[in-house]
């Protein structure tokens, strides 16, 4: 069993679907972090079987809703003095700009690069977003 020490002050992103942790890690720019960060992949979970976890030993300021775009089921634990003081479930934002990219090769955004990638939430339950320009559906956790 791999042992990673608990953190004193910071954030633990738990219940990440196995395989998505690394994407979240890079999306948060943690590969460039100057503080202690741990990415645990394929940890055993009674609920999920396998899961990924990210531990950040720092009070970083980032948009939690962004995490929901990668995996809407994550839990964000805020740690102070080695205790969880708050648990946050990120919610999908209504509008997303320049975070997800339209995968439709016929979309105008594939050729005119000055255009912002804008998506609006169309179905919260299914995690579906619609491209503002071509109506292509992006499904969180699948695309």
């Amino acid at each position: 069993m791999l042992t990673i020490t608990s953190i004193r002050n910071g954030i633990v992103i738990d219940h990440i679907r196995a395989g998505l942790g690394i994407r979240m890690f890079y999306q948060l720019g943690l590969d460039k972090a100057g503080y202690s960060v741990a990415l645990i992949m394929n940890a055993t979970s009674t609920r999920m079987g396998r899961k990924d976890i990210i531990k950040i030993e720092n009070s970083v300021d980032f948009d939690i809703t962004m995490l929901a775009l990668i995996d809407p089921n994550v839990t964000v634990n805020i740690i102070e003095d080695e205790h969880i003081v708050r648990k946050v479930k990120p919610e999908l934002p209504e509008r997303v700009e320049n975070i997800i990219t339209c995968k439709n090769p016929r979309c105008i955004t594939s050729v005119e690069k000055y255009i912002p990638q804008i998506f609006t939430l169309v179905n919260r339950e299914l995690g579906q977003y619609r491209c503002r320009y071509c109506d292509e559906i992006y499904t969180v956790g699948k695309d």
């Binding site: 016929r106 105008i108 005119e112 503002r132």
Partner: peptide, 10 residues
Amino acid sequence: RHPKEGAPRI
């Protein structure tokens, strides 16, 4: 008329 989808919106 444009071959790329969404061009008229731009």
